[in-house]
């Protein structure tokens, strides 16, 4: 069984930590530190297996790691896993990341830890290998991403499509009523109102007073002097 999967960079900064056995947070950090110290002092031309870490599992466990450019991928496993097999598994993991992020680098892992976790969850579950077929993993991940996108869509997607059309003219009122919706304001920049915008203001106001729309502010209104 895989006890933990740790990814950290050449300076020991963690980039991904996943424990399949419960440890309190302090101990987790200690394990990362110890593992880093053990792994980082090894040359590149020595074998990828390491024994003697004291924190997880004692003598029954091994550290199996691979070093890619700036990152160490370390799997802590017990004796029931094949050492060479785990090496292959690390390779599959990294290749999958590479396909997901297109030329994966440390920055991808930093800014998308959640995504890396999702990918890992399709590869390993509860400390056991779940799926090693890369295209299957990628397909599932993209399906789930699509599902997420669909949800954030709906209202938001439509409003985002043409927020500026609101500013265009007196037709704003009709557009607004057509949307019949939430006008969400994220940021109001320079609420400078000139003559051309009075109409808009009026229509917004009328809509407000008619209680035909509810206001939750999310989208950007640009009141711009140049917009006629």
């Amino acid at each position: 069984m895989i006890k933990a999967i740790l990814v950290f960079n050449n300076h020991g900064k963690p980039r991904l930590i996943k424990f399949y056995q419960y440890f309190v947070e302090e101990l987790q950090q200690q394990i990362i530190k110890e593992t880093f110290q053990l792994v980082s002092k090894r040359d590149d031309n020595v074998c990828n297996f390491l024994e003697g870490g004291s924190l997880i599992g004692g003598s029954d466990y091994k550290l199996i790691y691979r070093h890619y450019a700036t990152l160490y991928f370390v799997f802590c496993v017990d004796s029931s896993e094949s050492e060479l097999g785990i090496l292959d598994l690390i390779q599959v993991f990294v290749e999958t990341l590479d396909k997901c992020f297109e030329n994966v680098c440390e920055l991808d892992l930093i800014f998308h830890v959640d995504k890396v976790h999702y990918i890992l969850n399709e590869l390993v579950m509860g400390g056991m290998v779940l799926e090693t077929n890369m295209s299957e993993i990628l397909a599932r991940i993209s399906e789930q991403n699509k599902l997420e996108k669909q949800e954030t869509g709906l209202a938001a997607a439509r409003a985002r499509a043409k927020p500026f059309s609101l500013l265009s003219s007196a037709t704003g009122a009709t557009i607004l009523s057509e949307f019949h919706l939430k006008i969400e304001i994220l940021l109001v920049e320079c609420p400078f109102v000139n003559k051309s915008q009075l109409n808009l203001g009026a229509c917004v106001y009328s809509l407000l007073s008619n209680r035909r729309i509810t206001l939750t502010f999310k989208y950007v209104f640009y009141f711009n002097r140049s917009s006629s």
Binding site: I185, L186, V188, P191, V193, L198, G201, Y205, L215, F217
Partner: peptide
């Protein structure tokens, strides 16, 4: 217009505050 301006300003300022 004048009146509406004030109201609109208020509305937006409120929005600004909340957001």
């Amino acid at each position: 217009p004048a009146f509406n301006m004030a109201v609109i300003k208020e509305v937006f300022n409120e929005a600004l505050e909340r957001v």
